[in-house]
């Protein structure tokens, strides 16, 4: 690994990344929050959120990306997503059925509607976003370790 490579890609890529990465993250969050009224949802939104961090890592190198979202934080978010999802399911269980939709459904096609589904979407997006980022990091760092040994 050369030293320039550590710092990331060329100036053009870095500039474009700086301009777009926030929009990508925002779009992912939009997809998550509108999962129950339009196509998309927790998984798709989570993938887009993870891609924004992967984008950052590809353009600027891993140090910058880790400053935004470190491996430990990603792991915490991943577990938080899973536990949140399970808690939502168990709250429904306390109300009668596992995964019962216990919040009022509201009016269709509004942002605040559909009961627990938006909450589930948020939990899933946390899990998927952090998990996909962690998978990417695990695969990339493993390769770096292998090469540095040689």
């Amino acid at each position: 690994m050369s030293k320039e490579h550590e710092k990331g890609m060329s100036l053009i890529v870095k500039t474009i990344t700086r301009l777009t990465v926030g929009l990508i993250l925002l779009y992912g969050i939009y997809i998550v929050f509108h999962g129950h009224v339009s196509p998309g949802g927790g998984f798709a939104g989570g993938v887009i959120i993870a891609l924004s961090f992967i984008h950052l890592m590809l353009a600027y190198g891993r140090e910058v990306a880790f400053r935004k979202l470190s491996k430990a934080t990603a792991s915490v978010f991943e577990n938080l997503g899973a536990i949140l999802f399970l808690i939502i399911a168990l709250l429904g269980f306390a109300g009668g059925y596992f995964f019962l939709n216990f919040i009022s459904k509201g009016e269709p096609f509004r942002l605040f509607s559909a009961g627990i589904i938006p909450l589930c979407n948020i939990a899933i997006s946390l899990k998927v976003g952090a998990g996909l980022f962690a998978i990417f990091v695990a695969l990339v760092l493993l390769r770096l370790d292998g090469e540095s040994k040689k």
């Binding site: 998984f43 998978i135 695990a138 695969l139 493993l142 390769r143 292998g146």
Partner: peptide, 19 residues
Amino acid sequence: VIGLATTALLVAIAMRIYE
């Protein structure tokens, strides 16, 4: 989604095997 998990695991094992 299941396929994603399996593929990621397979790739990780393949990289370890190469190591």
